[in-house]
């Protein structure tokens, strides 16, 4: 199976690899996946509390090239969005942007789950009720 050029580009030049200070109240962290499944994604957002906009996003991913690319792309898309807008990022948009084949759709689902988990962590830290989500595609 050959990877798309976009996946290769994100893999070779990943955007926003790194760690934000998770002890800060305006940083939300989402850690999804499991080592036994071969994918673990950690996605973090830093929010400007005054504007509600995401000013920074970082990721670290253990997984295949598509998982790395999905999380790299997600961090790019998150920057500059409001926390509410972040929730509108759908896994299928990631699939389309990266031309992921069917066997790699779970990578995009993981990225969407990581965004939701990071937003919820941020909401929890700031006294907002956590959002409930329907179970996404079962792997």
């Amino acid at each position: 199976m050959a990877y798309s050029e976009k996946v290769i580009d994100h893999y070779q030049n990943p955007k926003n690899v790194g760690t934000l200070d998770k002890s800060k109240s305006n940083v939300g962290t989402g850690l999804v996946g499991a080592p036994e499944c071969g994918d673990v994604m950690r996605l973090q957002i830093e929010v400007d509390n005054a504007t509600g906009l995401i000013t920074d996003a970082k990721f670290k991913t253990f997984g295949c090239g598509s998982a790395i690319a999905s999380s790299s792309l997600a961090t790019e898309w998150l920057k500059g969005k409001s926390v509410d807008e972040a929730m509108t990022i759908d896994n299928m948009t990631i699939v389309e942007e990266l031309n992921l084949p069917p066997v790699k759709i779970h990578c995009s689902v993981l990225a969407e789950d990581a965004i939701k988990a990071a937003v919820n962590d941020y909401r929890k830290k700031n006294g907002l009720p956590e959002l409930k989500f329907e179970e996404s595609v079962v792997h």
Partner: peptide, 15 residues
């Protein structure tokens, strides 16, 4: 460098 598990290992976190 981009693995969250490696970072945890280096920080001594029990996975």
């Amino acid at each position: 460098e981009m693995s969250p598990l490696w970072e945890m290992y280096k920080e001594g976190i029990d996975m």
